[in-house]
Design a protein around this nucleic acid. Structure first.
Lengths: 159, 159
DNA sequence: ATTGAAATGGAGGGATT
DNA sequence: AATCCCTCCATTTCAAT
């Protein structure tokens, strides 16, 4: 298929103002347009146009609340490394599509190296986590091996 | 030290409405309050009170824009596993405090198992990633060993 | 604790410089 | 792009239940 126009140079035109907007909205996704405009040093209407353009071109994928996992009754978090049995594209893509729909999955990382995937998951208890791995991964014929690392604590970085 | 009052029963009082609010705001952090109220089946003013309470009690930690890493000129992502030389509380806490302030760090996971930390980082290029690891981790006397896994793709789960 | 009504303030659009 | 309109609607407060 031919290249879509949006795919050619989506981010080439980003200037310092755009990057400042992205940084501010990453830190506070509910920052009002007026306050955002003042922080990045442009007029509110300009800021609104910029922000809309950033959403439309895909630079801003969405806005999400950061929720304390414990509030959802899922106080445990873990990183589960997954090695697949086969590494054909179809098998790899299919596993990703399946894993993102599993309950409790926060993020799915397809990685290079000894492991193929790292799943960031939440669970209600250590028993629930064990059952989750057994029921969703161990029974999957595409999965050769898993290793679960409990997360003691997670912190957000600056970048 | 004694238990702080906030730690005793912070989330015991969460009911179905609260959980519905958390789910909706996780999916769309900019959902207007009146639309949110309609979805969860309460009056807008009630919904606002609930949402404010959820922020105040820490169930909602914040709101953030999800930005395409490529838009920031950091198209590469990696998971960097870190093993520390010492595991005394002071050393572990100090490393976490330092690592969250490093440029390009998205998340810091303190994990159980063979590794102590997993850092989710962004970089401009493979050379920049290599330099980042060398400059910030390899020179750190608290760091015994690191292993970097490039992220081919990341997908968000359903929760 | 929840609600509906009333005031405050921001979002969004358009025309002009 | 910025500024000054303008209208509309969401947010927020408050009295009442």
């Amino acid at each position: 298929m031919p290249l879509a126009a949006n795919d050619v140079r989506p981010y080439a035109a980003l200037d310092d103002t755009d990057r400042a907007i992205l940084a501010e909205l990453t830190a506070d996704g509910r920052l009002p347009n007026n306050a955002l405009a003042e922080r990045v040093g442009v007029a509110p209407s300009t800021c609104l146009t910029r922000t809309r353009a950033l959403r439309d071109c895909g630079a801003i994928r969405g806005f999400h609340a950061e929720v304390d996992p414990a509030a959802l009754g899922l106080p445990l978090q873990a990183l589960v490394s997954v090695r697949l049995t086969a590494h054909a594209r179809a098998a790899v893509d299919a596993f990703r599509a399946r894993s993102v729909r599993l309950p409790g999955v926060v993020s799915v990382f397809h990685v290079a190296g000894a492991e193929d995937y790292v799943l960031h998951v939440r669970a209600a208890s250590s028993a629930a986590l064990r059952d989750w791995v057994l029921d969703h991964l161990a029974v999957d014929p595409a999965v050769q091996h898993t290793q679960t690392s409990l997360i003691f604590e997670q912190a957000r970085g600056v970048g």
